[in-house]
């Protein structure tokens, strides 16, 4: 019971991170029908930006308050990562819009290779570890010599995820931009005809996707305290799995899928074997796509004859 509760807490934390990345996959897929292969690496870049911002804020500016530092780091990471993704969309994907269907996918794979190697070249190939940002925990339950702990950083991750999801939901459901996005999802030509700036809407989609990935990257850094240039691929695939599981194109689906993948992964590691934990995620991906390609919340794809 105690182990279960602890794994539940850990799983939700991990799941929040995956969910935030998954939204990026699902939004981009929804609007331009492309699997943005480089999104995992954008997440990795954001973790590096967050790390540099953290070092800058704490060692150069000497800000001691962890709340202020964390807030600055979060905002800086979101800003810069959004900029990076905006440029990526402009250079690598926009020229390919409406062309051969495989071209954007190959371009995205190339971008993914480029980003991870760019970080390797500019920041070095080693793991980068920073001192813990947040210490301390609540002990929820203590029996049989097993304490169930909810650490402050887990609480922060839950809190920030909840706040950002609310803000994001407002953005998509209630604003002009959100309406434009939904219009472009349905029919880009028609949306353009009724006065939606399609290019700008797609750009904004990439910006929002990157901002959410940056939140995930910052929290990943805070949670594990270590990041390396190769950390984009596996979380990227897991988040994509989450998006598929939830039903690609569905935003609530991405969040639910993220939580499920986080839980599956932690419980698998806790109760079975940690060796095959990535196999679990990949198997879930394959099984979902084969047996439930529309996911939990997606619309089924009907074959037209």
């Amino acid at each position: 019971m105690e182990v279960f509760l602890q794994q539940l807490i850990n799983g939700i934390t991990l799941g929040s991170i995956y969910g935030l990345i998954a939204i990026g996959y699902t939004m981009v897929f929804g609007i331009i029908g492309m699997v943005n292969f480089a999104h995992g690496d954008v997440f990795m870049v954001s973790a590096f930006v967050a790390m540099i911002a953290f070092l800058f804020v704490t060692t150069w500016l000497g800000i001691a308050s962890i709340t202020v530092a964390l807030l600055i780091v979060l905002i800086v990471a979101m800003l810069f990562t959004s900029g990076v993704n905006w440029v990526i969309e402009r250079l690598a994907y926009r020229p390919l819009r409406g062309s051969f269907r495989l071209a954007p996918l190959i371009s995205a794979i190339g971008m993914s290779i480029f980003l991870s190697n760019f970080v390797q070249v500019t920041q070095g190939p080693r793991n980068k570890a920073i001192p813990p940002m947040v210490r301390g925990e609540f002990i929820l339950l203590d029996s049989n010599n097993y304490a169930v702990a909810l650490s402050y950083k887990q609480l922060i991750i839950w809190g920030i995820t909840a706040v950002l999801l609310a803000a994001f939901w407002y953005l998509v459901a209630k604003t002009r931009l959100g309406r434009a996005q939904r219009a472009c999802e349905q029919d880009q030509k028609m949306a353009a005809l009724v006065g939606v700036n399609v290019d700008r809407t797609i750009s904004m989609t990439f910006v929002i996707a990157a901002a959410l990935a940056a939140v995930a990257g910052t929290m990943y850094l805070m949670y594990y305290g270590v990041v390396s240039f190769s950390d984009g691929f596996v979380p990227g695939v897991k988040a994509f799995t989450a998006a598929v599981l939830g039903g690609i194109g569905s935003l609530p689906g991405a969040v639910v899928g993220g939580l499920l993948i986080g839980l599956i992964e932690t419980f698998w590691s806790a109760y079975f074997t940690i060796d095959y934990k990535d196999v679990a995620a990949f198997s879930v991906l394959a099984i979902t796509l084969i047996f439930l390609p529309q996911g939990l919340f997606g619309r089924p794809d009907v074959e037209k004859v």
């Binding site: 250079l91 690598a92 020229p95 390919l96 071209a103 954007p104 190959i106 371009s107 794979i109 190339g110 971008m111 993914s112 290779i113 480029f114 980003l115 190697n117």
Partner: peptide, 10 residues
């Protein structure tokens, strides 16, 4: 290599 992939695709 990655950069080349993007460029050739574009």
């Amino acid at each position: 290599f990655g950069f080349g992939m993007v460029i050739i695709m574009v």
